[in-house]
Amino acid sequence: MANYITTDHDLIKIIQAAEESDLAIIADFITDRNNGRISLDTTIRTQIDTFKRCATLKNNSDLLIKEVQEFGGNSIVNFFRGSGVVYREILDDVADHMKVKIEKTDSAEQIELKILLAVAVKGMEQMKPEEQKSFFSKLTGGKIVGFGPGAIAALQASILAGGFSSYILATTVANAVATTLIGRGLALGVNAAFMRGLAGIAGPIGWAITAIWTAFDLASPAYRVTVPCVVQIAYMRQKAKVTEFPSCSQCGSAMTPDQKFCAECGAKSGV
């Protein structure tokens, strides 16, 4: 068993409960798709890749926990520190690096959502006005349709309150990051209609990821692991909270559980 910080419940509970396909993305972030990283031992890289190919990462999740903690230690102190830190320290460091304002009282989930929002807001800067409006509408089930400082503030309040909008945001950002960095997105085949509804907002965020990485200065080796891992873990946390994937029965667009009418086609929920 890998030697990791066993009191790190914010990380351990999510990793141990995750699906194999989601852990495979974490594995690729850590190993650079098995191409190797300077600070990653070759033996460990080979082990992680073997577990991924054999679909046994879930049974060996302790190794992923250890490596996420150690890459977090690398980014916080120096590249070759080689000792791990708890996930909360990683979140604090990533937020600081990305200039995301957080509070000491924020939970791990709240910090993750603030980081996702920072990526989304940067992504919106790359969108056309009509794409920005569509993003807001689909992200909030049609509750916010405009764009501007007031709409951004309302979006932030909606996301930080938790719920279905948080899941949509996490899914969209995580899918874009994975597609851009490792060449494949999330395994979301369980609800094709749901993902068709997200397609319109996933594209612009995906196109913006390269610009976002430059804006946040994520070129250092450790941050190329910790930031994508935080995004993926944030998605996994939100996914664990969602038990149903409502979608419009007419056009397949994503809908929130309390949404009465589809923001895309106007059909009544449940029709």
Score class of each variant (00 low, 15 high):
118 A>C: 04
235 Y>K: 07
206 G>D: 14
175 N>K: 01
188 L>F: 01
193 A>K: 12
259 Q>M: 12
268 K>M: 13
60 N>P: 00
161 A>T: 07
80 F>K: 07
19 E>D: 08
36 G>D: 06
112 E>V: 02
234 A>P: 05
72 G>L: 10
55 A>F: 12
87 Y>A: 00
231 V>D: 13
213 W>T: 14
11 L>W: 08
43 T>V: 09
241 K>T: 06
224 R>H: 03
28 D>N: 14
190 V>Y: 09
166 S>W: 03
16 Q>W: 06
159 I>Y: 02
11 L>V: 02
231 V>T: 13
176 A>E: 11
68 V>K: 06
160 L>K: 14
1 M>V: 01
116 L>W: 09
63 L>D: 03
31 T>D: 13
245 F>N: 05
136 F>N: 14
130 E>Q: 15
124 M>W: 01
129 P>I: 05
125 E>N: 11
260 K>E: 15
168 I>E: 08
197 G>A: 03
227 V>M: 12
16 Q>I: 01
13 K>P: 00
11 L>N: 04
230 V>T: 13
231 V>Q: 08
126 Q>M: 02
112 E>G: 11
93 D>P: 12
174 A>C: 14
204 P>F: 05
151 A>V: 03
207 W>R: 15
110 Q>N: 09
95 A>N: 04
221 P>E: 14
255 M>E: 07
86 V>C: 10
139 L>M: 14
94 V>S: 12
4 Y>E: 03
23 L>C: 07
127 M>G: 00
216 F>T: 04
20 E>A: 01
187 A>W: 03
62 D>R: 10
269 S>H: 13
243 T>Y: 09
4 Y>I: 00
126 Q>C: 04
12 I>S: 07
217 D>Q: 15
204 P>Q: 09
207 W>C: 08
158 S>R: 07
83 S>K: 09
202 A>F: 03
33 R>Y: 13
253 S>F: 10
67 E>W: 10
61 S>V: 01
203 G>L: 10
20 E>S: 02
76 I>F: 12
244 E>N: 13
120 A>W: 07
50 T>L: 11
125 E>K: 12
210 T>M: 15
138 K>F: 05
252 G>F: 06
177 V>W: 14
99 K>R: 06
192 A>R: 06
216 F>I: 06
48 I>E: 14
202 A>K: 11
198 L>Q: 11
241 K>M: 11
192 A>N: 03
7 T>Q: 12
46 T>K: 15
16 Q>V: 01
145 V>F: 00
10 D>V: 00
233 I>N: 07
110 Q>I: 05
270 G>E: 07
54 C>N: 14
187 A>F: 08
179 T>G: 13
181 L>S: 06
132 Q>L: 06
101 K>Q: 12
177 V>C: 10
152 I>Y: 02
120 A>L: 11
243 T>I: 11
172 T>I: 05
147 F>K: 13
211 A>I: 09
81 R>Y: 15
252 G>S: 10
64 L>H: 14
198 L>R: 00
163 G>A: 08
91 L>R: 06
151 A>D: 11
120 A>D: 05
8 D>K: 09
90 I>S: 02
234 A>T: 01
20 E>N: 09
196 R>Y: 02
18 A>K: 10
74 N>E: 05
190 V>G: 09
116 L>F: 10
166 S>D: 04
17 A>R: 15
95 A>W: 01
170 A>C: 07
154 A>P: 00
211 A>F: 15
151 A>E: 15
220 S>W: 07
270 G>P: 08
158 S>H: 04
67 E>T: 09
27 A>S: 15
239 K>D: 08
171 T>D: 09
